[in-house]
Design a protein around this nucleic acid. Structure first.
Length: 527
DNA sequence: CTGGGGACGGGGCCC
DNA sequence: AGGGCCCCGTCCCCA
């Protein structure tokens, strides 16, 4: 019995020892694994820190490089920008390319908004039955080798997606407008192809901005593409501009290269600061207000509407800022036909505050260099601003004011196609497109004899008589000849003594309005 | 010499 | 595409 008790005691002791040993072993294993795990974590953290440091260095280096672009170089290189345009889907893919650097954009397989996945957006506030926008994909490979493709990370995607879904423009704050409501018979944008509409690439100091504009209609076959023209009355074209690119780099003063902030995955992605955007198209489409037709066609594209008016036009404008670009605006396209879809520099800063009809506060400045030789396309903010204000304060504003609300007033013709900048209305997308060149500064028509560029073909034709010396209009009174009919008409006042402009204060009459204006300013300015 | 006015050429823009 | 108008810059003339 005693032996039995001793035996049990020994067994219990052995069991305890074994159990302790097992626990110790387990603890050891856990400790070892934990140590390894901690080591791995530490290494990962170190790698992350190193990557962040590199990223930061890259940002700083890039900003520094862009800051150090000599202004004199820019001044001698007014055209550091190439506007690329491409129509897609012309006649189902035959492609009516309107010229320029078409090869710059290639079919896309990736999306800078969200990889390989179109964003479907519900407009939300509308009352119509269709509320879908599909953001097309962008090509990450189109820039060729060496090009670093930047795309948004998930956080940014969420941000953009949220903005779209709520109908809030991603950049600009909206200002309430009393502009009449736009026709809203159509609120559906369907994806037409998988080709890109948003591309942001960067290669050293080369940046590419692709902006897609869509011209929509309510036709039954939205994919039919054709030649742009004025749609037949009653057709339902709804030009739409999609703010498709938030990020852009340019020759800034270094003040614009917010390279993504806390977004380490977007080393080249730059927040487009509305007040600080040196280059690019900054537009907005207020989905909530249904301003679907604020933008028509592309900035300068020739547009594509077929005769039946059942067309969706999807075109792209790629703004390529090339640090090594030649000083000419469109070296490879301005020569020749004079109708090349040339280049232009788009730079919007500030606002269209001078125009009361502006429905949005797009921050628009432009470097509308009237002298392509001497004027810099560089970060001459004040210069560009002055020029832009010149434009607005002279022609545009005066005319917009004269039209009392621009777009929607005073014309029996239906002008449903509104300028997205000044809200002026036009009867067809083509006219809107041409008109909007006033704001965008796009001048597709280049003189082959000089560096002059024009927004309209007729202007180029007029200008070319400067070179040719052609003066087809002769005065019947004095044999004097003129290159333009309106000049002849003005000249005829010399013979007729016509002075239609009378001063309301002193009665003095003038042959031209400007003389009257100058006269009144100098002599009756206090009145 | 200076300033006002006229003439002309040119660009911009709309119709 | 062309016409027409507006605006501006420049040059010239003349008081």
């Amino acid at each position: 019995m005693a032996n039995c008790m001793v035996f049990h005691t020994q067994i219990a002791s052995i069991m305890e020892v074994l159990a302790n040993a097992a626990v110790a072993e387990i603890c050891k294993l856990v400790d070892d694994d934990y140590a390894v795990f901690r080591l791995e974590i530490t290494q990962s953290q170190k790698e992350n820190r190193a990557l962040r440091r590199k990223l930061l260095e890259l940002k700083v280096a890039r900003e520094r490089a862009e800051r150090t672009i000599p202004e004199r170089v820019l001044a001698s290189r007014p055209s550091s920008v190439k506007i690329l345009d491409r129509y897609r889907g012309m006649a189902r893919g035959e492609g009516h390319l309107t010229g320029g650097h078409r090869s710059f954009v290639k079919p896309a397989e990736h999306n800078t908004w969200r990889d390989d996945q179109p964003i479907t957006v519900d407009e939300g506030s509308g009352t119509s039955t269709q509320h879908v926008i599909v953001i097309e994909s962008a090509d990450a490979e189109s820039a060729g080798p060496g090009v670093k493709q930047e795309r948004s990370d998930g956080k940014d995607d969420l941000w953009r997606s949220r903005d779209i879904q709520t109908g809030v423009p991603p950049v600009i704050t909206e200002v309430p407008t009393t502009a009449p409501a736009q026709p809203r018979t159509q609120r559906s944008i369907t994806e037409v192809s998988g080709t890109p509409n948003v591309v942001l690439k960067s290669q050293t100091d080369t940046k590419t901005l692709t902006v897609t504009h869509r011209l929509l209609h309510t036709g039954s076959d939205p994919e039919r593409l054709g030649k742009l023209g004025c749609p037949a009355p009653g057709s339902e074209y709804l030009p739409v501009f999609l703010q498709s690119q938030r990020t852009v780099n340019s020759y800034g003063d270094g003040d614009v290269l917010d390279t993504g902030g806390d977004d380490p995955s977007c080393s080249y992605a730059t927040e487009m600061d509305s007040s600080n955007m040196p280059l690019g198209l900054e537009t907005q489409t207020d989905l909530s207000r249904g301003d679907w037709n604020q933008y028509s066609s592309s900035v300068y594209s020739e547009g594509c509407l077929d005769e039946k008016g059942e067309v969706i036009v999807i075109d792209e404008v790629t703004v390529k800022v090339e640090g090594d670009a030649p000083p000419t605006w469109n070296a490879d396209s301005h020569l020749g036909d004079g109708h090349s879809q040339g280049t232009s520099f788009l730079d919007y800063r500030g606002s269209l505050e001078t125009n009361p009809n502006v429905p949005t506060l797009s921050t628009l400045h432009t470097l509308r260099d009237r002298d392509p030789v001497s004027m810099s396309m560089g970060p001459s903010d004040s210069h560009g601003h002055v020029l832009f204000n010149q434009v607005l304060n002279s022609n545009d504003t005066a005319r917009a004011q004269a039209q009392e609300g621009g777009a929607t007033s005073g014309n029996s013709k239906e002008k449903r196609f509104l300028c997205m900048f000044c809200n002026k209305g036009f009867s067809c997308p083509k006219k809107v497109e041409i008109h909007q060149r006033v704001h965008t500064g796009v001048k597709p028509f280049n003189c082959t004899q000089c560096h002059m560029r024009f927004a309209q073909a007729g202007d180029l034709k007029k200008h070319q008589r400067v070179h040719t010396g052609e003066k087809p209009y002769s005065c019947t009174q004095c044999e004097k000849r003129f290159s333009r009919q309106d000049h002849l008409k003005m000249h005829l006042k010399v013979h007729t003594g016509e002075r239609p402009f009378a001063c309301t204060h002193c009665g003095k009459r003038f042959s031209e309005r400007r003389y009257l204006r100058i006269h009144q300013q100098k002599n009756h300015s206090t009145l």
